[in-house]
Simulated assay, not measured.
Amino acid sequence: MHDIGYQRYTGTRLGRRHVVGALYAHSLRTAFGLGRSAKAKIFPWFIVAIVVAVAAGLVAIRTQIGEVLLSYAQFADAMSWLVIFFVAVVAPELVSRDLGSGVLPLYFSRPLRIADYPLAKFAALATAVFMLLGVPQLVMFLGGAFTTETGWSGVWNEVTDLAPGLVYALLWAAVFSAIGLTVASVTGKRAFAAGGVVAVFLMTTPIVGVLGVLPSVTANQLAGLAAPSTLVQGTGLWLFRDALVTSPDGGGIGIGDFGPVYGLVTVALIAGCVVALLARYRKAARR
Rank of each mutant, 00 (worst) to 15 (best):
L69K: 00
T63M: 11
V87I: 13
L69Y: 11
R36L: 13
V52A: 15
E67M: 13
V20R: 04
A31G: 07
S80K: 10
A55D: 08
V51R: 03
K39G: 15
F85E: 04
V48L: 09
G11D: 14
T10V: 13
F75I: 01
T30S: 12
P92C: 06
L28K: 06
V54A: 11
V48A: 14
E67P: 01
M79T: 05
L14C: 01
R29T: 05
R36M: 12
V89A: 10
V90R: 01
L23E: 14
G11H: 08
G66R: 12
P92H: 06
F32G: 05
L34M: 14
R36I: 02
A22N: 11
R16Y: 09
Y24E: 04
A40V: 02
V87L: 04
V68A: 08
E93K: 04
F86T: 04
L70D: 03
K39T: 13
V20Y: 00
V83R: 01
A78K: 05
E67R: 15
T10W: 05
V54F: 07
H26R: 14
G33P: 07
I50D: 05
S37P: 08
L82P: 00
L23C: 03
H18P: 00
F75K: 01
S27Q: 08
A38S: 15
R17M: 06
I47P: 03
D77I: 13
G11S: 10
R29K: 15
G57F: 10
Q64K: 13
R17V: 06
F43Q: 10
M79K: 04
G33D: 06
L94Q: 01
Q74N: 12
A38K: 13
A60F: 07
F86K: 03
S27V: 03
S37K: 09
A88V: 05
G15N: 08
V48D: 05
L23I: 10
L58T: 02
L23M: 13
Y24A: 05
L58A: 02
Q74C: 09
A38Q: 12
I42V: 15
T63C: 06
V20T: 09
F86G: 01
A76S: 14
G21K: 04
S80A: 15
G35P: 05
P92K: 05
G57P: 08
R29H: 01
I50A: 09
I65E: 13
I50G: 03
